[in-house]
């Protein structure tokens, strides 16, 4: 069962075979998505019609390439916008929360911590729907009582940011708090002894120490926002982020341009994954 215990060849090779099948299973969908981005056919299916870069660069219908598809361009921009706002909000609150939970003691702290974890248990669809109901209820109230239409409370990008902010904050808080927990308080005390004010000490000592976790949380947050579907679907208005556009296209009938977008998305995410891995690797205190 472990290398130091002698095992039959059959036992070891059956494990190896299982691992091989498992990783084939894991990678197969990703590989086909990538491969079919280069199929010179109108449908992302066999038979193979030959290799083409057309789904990236072609500028004419019916094989309109990704780089000439205005709708896709626009939705990528929308996703970037949403992800940026969500990340700024979520990471700021996460740093705040980390200091609250790691440095302060107050009655009801444990309960507050449990409540903070709550968004992880609420399914994304429910989270989106409940925020939709609440904002619509408030908007309807203003509309009926004061005849004011508050556009920002209607389905649209602002609500999408709010919905994503609601659960991404929890994840970011866990990341930042984990690093703050390992911080050696004597470093801050040393700064105080040397005449720094509390705020100066935090700014010059603690925040730089936290920076890898903050950047890591930002990367995760940006990624989660960019690829979020469930919550977004419920709150989206007329401007759709990339995942919503892709979903609509999938239902209409996919063309390999979706594969092309997916391939770029995959490359970007894997790059992000490596960046994140590298960040963590450099600071071995987090596993």
């Amino acid at each position: 069962m472990i290398p130091s215990i002698p095992q039959s060849k059959l036992f070891k090779s059956s494990f190896r075979l299982y691992a091989f099948i498992f990783f084939t299973f894991l990678m197969a969908p990703l590989v086909v998505v990538a491969v079919f981005a280069f199929n010179d056919s109108l449908f992302p299916s066999l038979p193979w019609q030959g290799f083409t870069w057309g789904w990236f660069f072609s500028d004419a219908e019916p094989k309109l390439g990704l780089f000439h598809d205005q709708q896709l361009y626009k939705s990528i921009g929308t996703s970037f916008l949403v992800a940026s706002f969500t990340t700024i909000l979520a990471v700021s609150l996460a740093v705040n929360n980390a200091f609250l939970f790691e440095r302060k003691t107050f009655p009801g702290k444990n309960i507050l911590y449990m409540l903070m974890l709550l968004p992880l248990v609420i399914p994304g669809v429910i989270l989106g729907v409940s925020i939709l109901i609440m904002s619509s209820t408030i908007a309807n109230y203003f509309d009926e009582v004061w005849a004011i239409d508050i556009e920002i409370l209607r389905p649209g990008l602002a609500l999408v940011v709010v919905g994503q902010f609601a659960f991404i904050t929890t994840i970011c808080t866990l990341i930042v708090a984990a690093r703050l927990r390992n911080f050696d308080l004597s470093l801050e005390e040393a700064a105080l002894n040397l005449g720094a004010t509390k705020l100066q000490a935090i700014r010059t000592i603690t925040i730089p120490y936290l920076l890898p976790a903050i950047v890591g949380a930002a990367v995760i947050s940006f990624f989660m926002s960019f690829e979020n579907f469930n919550t977004t679907l419920m709150l989206v208005g007329s401007d759709s982020p990339l995942t919503i556009t892709l979903y609509d296209r999938l239902r209409e009938g996919a063309t390999p341009v979706i594969n092309a977008v997916s391939l770029l998305l995959m490359l970007a995410s894997i790059l992000l994954a490596f960046a994140n891995y590298f960040l963590k690797g450099k600071n071995s205190s987090i596993k």
Binding site: M27, P29, L30, V32, V33, S262, L265, S269, L272, A273
Partner: peptide, 20 residues
């Protein structure tokens, strides 16, 4: 290697299964 697929959007993964 186990982690890589999960850095890819769920939409893309499901789309891959549809093609398969």
């Amino acid at each position: 290697l186990c982690l890589i697929p999960f850095w890819v959007s769920e939409l893309v993964r499901t789309y891959g299964w549809m093609i398969l």
